[in-house]
Design a binder for these strands. Structure first.
Lengths: 213, 213
DNA sequence: GACATTAACAGACATACGTCTGTATTGTCG
DNA sequence: CGACAATACAGACGTATGTCTGTTAATGTC
């Protein structure tokens, strides 16, 4: 095999990967035969050979036996942006059910699994000096605890709020970043940490989160 | 049929829709039998009845005969997430070439075409009071002009800078949002507007822009 | 009570799709 | 040349999955 043809082959492999990725991102993975048809192979197996090679390279994952079984790898390639639900208002404990009825979806790149992430629209000026303004969208990683100093989403009195967490003498304190507001020092049983803010976004114009019907 | 049971049924229909949508967004649509199993139906047909009803309602589209043929109707996700290049440093006129060698890619939802967008990492404290901090990433729509009051990326003295644009007496003024900095009022031929900031992002932890494989 | 409607079930059938086995061709290397 | 690997092809096979037909039970209507 000549170097030229080997190069040509690598190029085709790349093309096939891009095709599959595109199809996955636009709705559903392609079947082996769809790949075959799109690239003009005269045998299904030829397409399959490439797909299996891509799996071996780690560019694709697959679920053997299943129809349309090729997937984008979750951890190794953070490349595909996952869509996480944007929640308008989080109330008492209803995080899981709220995720099923979001205001929209926001594309996020993260190593975290999709179902551990959600997005929340910020209300109020209490974090102004941390450069988080009302209307901003925060991306949150669900976790029950966080380190002192991190910005978290906490549920206090049936209402979700974004604050900086301080742990003092084993007690949870929620500190605003605005001198006009006072720290919240709730009883331990009246506060629950929903997650840690890992990203802040502000949509100024022309790029807004997708609203769901 | 009682009103109660009819309501219960509508609720189940909704649950099934949310399940299917979630599965589509996480990789691939479910099969009829996966829906059956997830909701405990004892016959495939029961799941199928619901899915067909959802198609009739317009909540789902389907490709008949195809495996995993259910889709989200076009329009339920207005804009696809495109990946725009993240540029570390923009210098004199080299915007097009810089786009070819990005520091990474950032997923953005926008109606704008992919090649009219880029992302830029912010340096300096000059926009602090507009809640834009050093290290933040701004998403920029390429355009040669902008309205007074909008936040823009401008090229001044061979260096890209983020400032608020003011047009006064036909002159371009670039205003920082920080009293420690002075407005820039350059000669018209020494300044060039590269684009308008349409989004601001701050990556706190665990979600950073990635390099393309 | 006769009848229609609806949700759910049961089972068979058809096909879309993944998978396996084997062959032909071409190029590389010793 | 002969062994070997890589690519592509051909065709068959098995199963995953969509689809069809008919039944049962519950409920509501006249």
């Amino acid at each position: 095999m000549t170097a030229a043809s080997r190069y040509r082959s690598q190029e085709r492999k790349r093309r096939i990967f891009l095709f599959v990725r595109d199809r996955i991102l636009s709705g559903a993975p392609p079947t082996t035969r769809e790949v075959q048809a799109h690239f003009g192979f005269r045998a299904v197996q030829s397409a399959r050979d490439y797909l299996e090679a891509l799996v071996r390279d780690g560019l694709l994952d697959k679920e053997p036996g299943k129809a349309r079984g090729y997937r984008l790898p979750a951890g190794s390639t953070p490349y595909p942006a996952v869509l996480v639900p944007l929640l308008g208002r989080v109330q008492a404990g209803a995080l899981t059910t709220a995720s099923e009825d979001p205001d929209g979806y926001v594309p996020v790149q993260s190593a975290k699994p999709r179902d551990e992430l959600f997005a929340l629209r910020v209300r109020g000026e209490s974090m102004r000096d941390a450069a988080i303004l009302p209307g901003d969208v925060v991306i949150v990683h669900r976790q029950e605890s966080a380190a002192s100093g991190e910005i978290v989403v906490a549920l206090v009195e049936d209402e979700a709020t974004v604050k900086r967490l301080k742990l003092r003498a084993g007690r949870i304190e929620l500190h605003p970043a605005n001198p006009a507001f006072d720290p919240i020092v709730p009883d331990a049983d009246r506060v629950r940490i929903l997650g840690k803010v890992i990203e802040v976004r502000r949509y100024l114009e022309g790029s807004a989160p997708v609203l769901e019907p």
